[in-house]
Simulated assay, not measured.
Amino acid sequence: MSHGTARSPMIFDRAFLTDVEGVTELIFVRHGEQYVPDPRTGPVGDTIDPPLSDRGRQQAEAVGARLSADRVDAVYASPLQRALETGRAIARHHRLEPIVIDDLREVEIFRDIPPEKSAIDFLGRELLLGIRERMLRERKWDVYPYSESSFEFRKRTVNAVEAIIAGNQGKRVVIACHGGVINAYIGHIIGSPYDMFFRPAHASISVVFAGEGVRALQSLNDVHHLRTGEWNLVSH
């Protein structure tokens, strides 16, 4: 084959969607850092939808600048403030407005506890400590009582992302969302048994290619844009 001649996709090109036409590129961005009271001792309701912190806004600006040079066809976002603010910081570089998808919201831990109650008051210290120990070992949302189940959460988030793919074939889209959502979708496509198999940094980038019935992970938890010059904006 002579140089400069387009070659037919090989087996690993097809398996991992490299050098294949019509591929949809999904750029998952975790939201910037938020201000959150301690969910164990503060009211559960205060932890659901906090805004970005000052550092979180800096992180959102940094990831927006990182993606400003690339073509972006659409930006999708969770309705929760921290993700929507991050999505807007990305979208404005492309003269876009984020498309809000309710099912991209974070897993709803302790959603059935009265919002004015703290988890420690409602569950008791010993049960809360026991739950924490289980989560360390099992990394499944199902260990939390009064919460959204692992099955419910993965079903709604995977369906939401697949709907985005279906509506954006061959395009590059940004999905500004949450650490649990990113774990749910990528965990689904790689077959991870854990609900949290890695910890995405705030405003980190993870990339998935989709096409021809294939979903292929390309990069995970990229934070290079948060470690530039004299700044180190990496947080979790």
Rank of each mutant, 00 (worst) to 15 (best):
A69N: 11
K117Y: 13
E133S: 13
G191T: 03
L80I: 08
F110S: 08
D13P: 07
E133K: 15
R111S: 11
F197K: 04
F198E: 02
V23D: 03
V44L: 01
S68D: 12
D142H: 11
D222T: 11
Y35E: 13
E116M: 06
H236T: 11
I27K: 02
A15N: 11
A77Q: 00
R55S: 07
D70H: 15
A83G: 02
Y185C: 04
R125C: 09
L52F: 05
M196H: 13
R82T: 02
A166S: 15
V161A: 06
A65K: 14
I205T: 03
D142W: 11
V36F: 02
V208E: 08
V234P: 10
I164R: 06
A77E: 00
D103L: 06
Q34D: 08
P79D: 04
A74M: 13
P115N: 09
P79C: 08
D73H: 04
G180S: 05
I186N: 02
A184P: 11
R71M: 15
L129E: 15
V143K: 10
V174Q: 06
K117M: 15
E152P: 02
S2H: 15
R139M: 10
N183L: 03
A15I: 12
V173Q: 01
S192R: 08
S8R: 11
V20E: 07
I205A: 01
